[in-house]
């Protein structure tokens, strides 16, 4: 079920650009003098689930923010359905935005609205759906994420994991062609994680939705991913240090990747200063 009226036009466009939905070229993002993303390149094809991995603070959310056109990069190109969003105004972006859903890391639910109102918001504001049907869609979306009957609570009255699921339901409200989710399963129990993963798989494999998912959860990453990239940190900050299909990633011998996937404390991923630097740092002479 697609609520978007120009989906036929978009299908045509997809074929023209050989099914590439997202194309990122030489993306650079800086905050002050820190370079967070340093020449990122990748493509996401229709129906793919792209997994973005990497340590905390390595720039995953920053990357996602660029993809939704919420901040402008320092340089580089981001094409969604062939349109370079880095050169588009807010007004030009809106039709594109109606085609995608975004699940923020914090959920970003409107605190002043109930859960039901949060989910119906994009429907009421951006589609011509009859208000009577909106109620029905809200119930269906809540059912999908296992939260039937919670529509009258406020976001402040539910747990973090539940907020994530409501945010997912809201992101899916308009049946997007493209879903961005930032750590959708953080704070969820294993069963709920499996439910959310299955939902993502169903939507991408059966309905042809494209997904970009940031996650730390390796089980979930291998379960839903069709392509994976890993962002580096420390000296590799801002670079893609490994990429490939889940099979390729499993076989990739890169020690940093292995350490991350296996969740080991010891390894090449830089966490601490070296012994000497540490003393200097403590004594304030470094």
């Amino acid at each position: 079920m697609t609520l978007d009226s120009d989906s036929s036009k978009s299908a045509l466009h997809d074929r023209e650009s050989k099914d590439v939905v997202i194309e990122v070229k030489d993306l650079v993002v800086r905050f002050g003098d820190r370079t967070i993303l340093d020449g990122i390149n990748f493509k996401v094809h229709k129906g793919d689930t792209m997994i973005i991995m990497g340590g905390s603070g390595c720039g995953k959310s920053t990357l996602l923010r660029q993809l939704i056109g919420s901040t402008v990069p320092d340089s580089g190109e981001i094409r969604l359905y062939g349109f370079d969003i880095t050169r588009m105004s807010e007004k030009e972006l809106d039709p594109l935005r109606k085609r995608f859903g975004m699940l923020f890391q914090s959920g970003a639910l409107l605190q002043s609205l109930t859960i039901g109102e949060n989910i119906s918001l994009p429907l009421l504001e951006n589609s011509k759906v009859d208000p009577a049907i909106v109620d029905l869609i809200v119930k269906m979306k809540l059912e999908l994420v296992g939260l039937t009957g919670f529509e009258n609570l406020k976001p402040a009255e539910i747990s973090g994991g539940m907020k994530k699921r409501v945010a997912l339901a809201r992101a899916l409200a308009l049946d997007p062609d493209l879903l961005f989710s930032d750590e959708p399963t953080a704070g969820l129990d294993p069963v709920m994680t499996a439910v959310v993963d299955k939902l993502t798989c169903d939507l991408t494999r059966k309905l042809g939705m494209t997904a970009v998912v940031v996650t730390h959860d390796m089980t979930s990453a291998f379960r839903i991913g069709t392509y994976m990239i890993m962002l580096g940190s420390g000296p590799h900050q801002g670079k893609i240090i490994a990429e490939g299909t889940p099979e390729e990633i499993k076989k990739n011998p890169d020690p940093m990747l292995r350490q991350f996937i296996n969740g080991e404390a010891d390894g090449p991923i830089p966490l601490k200063l070296s012994q000497d630097d540490y003393f200097k740092h403590l004594l304030g002479s470094g």
Binding site: M102, L110, N126
Partner: peptide, 10 residues
Amino acid sequence: EIEALRVMAI
């Protein structure tokens, strides 16, 4: 929340 609104084209 404001960013979320903008992303929802609101």
